[in-house]
Design a protein around this nucleic acid. Structure first.
Lengths: 333, 333
DNA sequence: CTGAAAGCGCTTACAG
DNA sequence: CTGAAAGCGCTTACAG
């Protein structure tokens, strides 16, 4: 039972492959195919249960109609959500999405870029890892459509969809200050990614503004040593001499680890120490306290990233657009 | 800058396309290509930065080297985890994975099967929805490789990787009985999927064994009306006359909703009411009590499903294999 | 041991 | 308005 192709339809009707192809692609007007011929072709096609061979079509026109998405870890809720909205939007444009994970390793990122390039994806949606810049640069140099999400490299001329991390941090800190905090700690990753630097800068500027800035209260955690580092960070912050009364967690993963340690050390939250964090966490639902958090517009981020990418794929001379979305401060839950 | 193809290499070396293709696919022995020729071809290929056109290759041999994965919702941690391990394993076999969501809607499932069929995936990995049986049956009839995961249809002759839901339930109930419970409620979905029926059957049999069975303590919740139904279910169970002392939650989503309602109603856990649930939950980390749970071997499920599928793709006369994995009862966290 | 040729299914100029 | 033909890049018999 061989699959029915354009040729079968053409043969049956005594018309050419070209005519069938034109009609089935809705290009009968450009090809100026007669209405009767067109109708007959459509009828026979559906009678024969014709289904186009997309592998052949993709090969012929040099497009796979596939988008490659690279994230750190699909089982992280932030990325899982992002992936969900990206897929939903991509589907609307007729694209499928191949998701791959880097686990925050630049080596893995290099590999994944290679894998997706070999798959001939039409474009890349990337949440880059630290030191992942050269692999993105390589794609850009090859003129392949790329949109960075969540994180970006300022030196690279590439489209991106990010949030205003600086102002988000300022908002977070202001929230603590408004609640009466003066000695506010920051728990953040130790790395060189722009969004991390921006969050740090926002924290510092906001505190300086109030004259509360104290560099000893910044605790930087290694992603790969999280388990240990977070303990050190929280212990350090809670040291008596700091008179700590507030903590800003710069990511949801840091918050999740940090709050456990705080509980372990029986910190009095929120009476003694007030918190604010990036991103909503499952943890909120299980705690009796309400923790304000920075809400990132994940659905919009996904949606706009796909739109930017599809636009790039369509245009040969793509315009580089950097979209910076605003966040909002929400009271949990 | 046109991409370098086999033809370019062949032209440069004065050999035929066939020879180049043979060598680059490591089939020089079958083609009995001379060692020197082969070496020269490999050298030139790498000098010219040759990268095979997989679209062309896929089209030619009729394989996309892509697997379609259909789950209910990628932002559900259970599926996100499953997807993670599936991807990892698929990559080892040279396959990419396209993930799609059904949101537990059979209409959406029908659509996703169609989308993936149009994409010419080499095989399907499906967590089917209720009433999704005909769409799976259709794939099987067309002789397309399919492996069901987590859920299956007994009437269908199709490969699957599931867990022993019946015995898992028995184990869960036994745990409560051993902790002294006699009036044990069940919170479960109201649907006809086999894994749900099996979990229910396990619960009933285990209780009958002890003479504790009471049908009034079974509460069935509609997936789409979860918010409301869970309130009714928990309120019903906690009614005085039931003298409830234990609850078995048949899925992690039910547990997550149910525990919130229990807290709201200030149920005394675990002194008054003891719990057991399917799957680990983030919630465990935030509660001061330890809740035993049924651990499903998600990494193995993903891995074996991919192996089964790849085997099917390789063989024209696929063998139907149903793998039933055992679960274990763990104490959280 | 290697080359010449056919063909996968489709689309796209081109010719009439 | 429609057909004949070329060709995308690859693999696979087949012939020598």
């Amino acid at each position: 039972m061989t699959r029915v192709s354009i040729k079968h339809i053409a043969g049956k009707l005594g018309v050419s492959n070209a005519t069938v192809s034109l009609v089935l692609n809705g290009k009968e007007k450009e090809g100026r195919v007669g209405k009767e011929t067109a109708d007959k072709i459509r009828q026979v096609a559906s009678e024969m249960n014709y289904e186009p061979n997309n592998l052949a079509r993709g090969f012929r026109i040099g497009k796979s109609h596939t988008i490659g998405l690279i994230v750190a870890d699909i089982s992280n809720p932030f990325f899982a959500n992002l992936a969900f909205y990206i897929q939903e939007q991509a589907e609307k444009f007729g694209y499928s999405v191949i998701i791959t994970n880097t686990n925050e390793s630049d080596l893995k990122m290099e590999k994944m870029v290679q894998v997706l390039k070999n798959r001939q994806v039409d474009g890349f949606l990337i949440v880059p890892t630290e030191y992942g810049e050269p692999y993105v640069a390589d794609l850009v140099n090859r003129n392949l459509p790329v949109v960075l999400i969540d994180r970006y490299f300022p030196a690279l001329n590439v489209s991106s969809v990010i949030v205003d991390n600086y102002n988000a941090s300022v908002k977070a800190v202001e929230n603590l200050v408004n609640r009466g905090c003066k000695n506010i700690g920051l728990v953040i990753y130790k790395n060189s990614l722009q969004h991390i630097l921006e969050r740090k800068r926002g924290y510092m500027d906001a505190l300086k503004e109030h004259g509360y800035y104290n560099p000893a209260l910044i605790k930087e955690v290694n992603y790969s040593l999280m388990q240990d580092d977070i303990v050190i960070a929280i212990e350090g912050l809670l040291a008596k001499e700091n008179k700590l009364d507030g903590i800003f967690f710069a990511t949801n993963t840091l918050f999740t680890s940090g709050i456990k340690q705080l509980k372990l050390m029986q910190a009095d939250i929120p009476n003694h120490i007030k918190l604010v964090t990036f991103d909503k966490s499952e943890a909120f639902e299980w705690m009796n306290i309400s923790i304000p958090y920075i809400l990132q517009p994940i659905p919009d981020m996904g949606k706009m990233a796909v739109e930017l990418l599809v636009e790039q794929i369509g245009n040969n001379a793509p315009m580089v657009k950097c979209i910076e979305l605003q966040t909002s401060l929400k009271e949990a839950p």
